[in-house]
Amino acid sequence: MGFKLLSKLLVYLTASIMAIASPLAFSVDSSGEYPTVSEIPVGEVRLYQIADGVWSHIATQSFDGAVYPSNGLIVRDGDELLLIDTAWGAKNTAALLAEIEKQIGLPVTRAVSTHFHDDRVGGVDVLRAAGVATYASPSTRRLAEVEGNEIPTHSLEGLSSSGDAVRFGPVELFYPGAAHSTDNLIVYVPSASVLYGGCAIYELSRTSAGNVADADLAEWPTSIERIQQHYPEAQFVIPGHGLPGGLDLLKHTTNVVKAHTNRSVVE
């Protein structure tokens, strides 16, 4: 069995187990497998329904001669939608809004960016022009300005110390501490036991640490421990890039980060 097929099978099995364990909360999309990078042309966006009122959005972007996937989250909030992270750029984010209108038909009224990198804030200006209120932590807003990236308009308070959590509509926002970046936030959907790890969490097929220019490698494993301790009931975990899975993604990420750190020390 090929690795790609095995990865998709694991996603399907995880979703099936969740649907059985929580039949009222989960209505997993039966329309197909989780979209992969090879299936999404740059400039297009796919939506994948995880649970009743919960979707991931998947886009792709060219970077350094390669094409990478990027995940975000959409959560229903009454007759409105909360968006977590842009679709990595203005063109993708405009396509995301169009796809949401086509498939869901509810307005996106608020959006949260989970850290300051372009795959999370690139497209904020498109959201703002569409009347979406954009939010991020003060740290993310400051770092985005320093980096020359787009800056969300509103500040999220109460997320300055490791372990801080605040309720934001249908989700809980959690600051686990520094990891992929010093400002990275985690998003949890309690009604569906869905954990969105953003770039602080890796997919299972990833074996290298990737972009760690703004990471705190020493603190990252401790931050992941905080996530595990705060959300032990999480059933569906979405990484910032690639295929979702279960809580095993947290341990896998820790292993990859520690291996990278150990290699760096040896070198």
Rank of each mutant, 00 (worst) to 15 (best):
P23T: 14
R226N: 14
V212C: 08
A95T: 11
Y175M: 13
G163A: 07
T253H: 10
G210F: 15
A15P: 01
Q229T: 13
L204W: 14
I227Y: 01
W220C: 07
A192Y: 10
Q103T: 14
D119R: 01
D183M: 00
A165V: 11
T114L: 00
D64C: 13
A234M: 03
V146N: 02
V171G: 09
K4F: 01
G158K: 10
L5E: 08
R142H: 01
A25Y: 03
M1N: 07
A94C: 13
R141L: 12
S161A: 11
Y196E: 02
V37F: 08
L249M: 04
K251H: 00
N211W: 13
H154C: 03
K8P: 03
A259H: 07
V187L: 14
S208W: 14
G177L: 03
S137C: 13
H252C: 12
K8Q: 08
A218W: 05
T109K: 12
Y188H: 08
Y175G: 03
S223C: 12
T253Q: 12
A66R: 07
L204H: 09
D79W: 14
R226P: 06
H260F: 15
S205A: 12
N92Q: 14
A87T: 01
A165G: 11
E172T: 13
A213H: 13
R76M: 11
E33F: 10
K102R: 12
E44M: 09
P176M: 02
L217F: 01
T222H: 14
G242H: 15
S205R: 13
S264E: 03
N255V: 11
T182Q: 12
T86C: 14
L185F: 03
G163Q: 13
T222G: 09
S30T: 14
S161H: 03
S162D: 09
I50R: 10
T182I: 13
F3E: 07
H154E: 15
D125Q: 05
Y135F: 11
S155C: 15
F63R: 03
E44G: 08
G32V: 02
S113L: 07
R76F: 02
Y231G: 10
P232N: 15
G122T: 11
L204C: 15
D216C: 08
D183V: 01
A129E: 11
S137G: 10
P23F: 08
G240N: 05
G65E: 03
Y48S: 08
A144Y: 02
G242S: 13
L250I: 01
E150R: 15
E39C: 08
Y202P: 05
G148R: 12
D85V: 00
Y12N: 05
C199M: 01
V37S: 06
I227S: 07
I84A: 13
E225K: 07
T60K: 04
E80W: 13
A178P: 12
H260I: 03
I151C: 14
Y34M: 02
L6Y: 11
V54C: 06
K258T: 08
T93L: 00
L250W: 12
S38L: 07
G210R: 10
R120S: 08
G246Q: 02
P138V: 03
D77N: 09
G2V: 08
P138K: 03
I74G: 05
R263A: 07
I40H: 03
H117I: 00
L10S: 08
G72S: 09
T253N: 12
V126A: 15
S193E: 07
P152Y: 15
L243C: 14
K251F: 06
A144V: 05
L96N: 01
P152L: 09
V166L: 10
N92C: 09
G72Q: 07
I100S: 11
I238A: 12
T114C: 00
L127R: 02
G198T: 15
G53T: 03
S38P: 07
V237N: 03
S70A: 08
E225S: 03
E101L: 10
A51P: 04
P244A: 14
S191N: 10
A21D: 11
E233N: 08
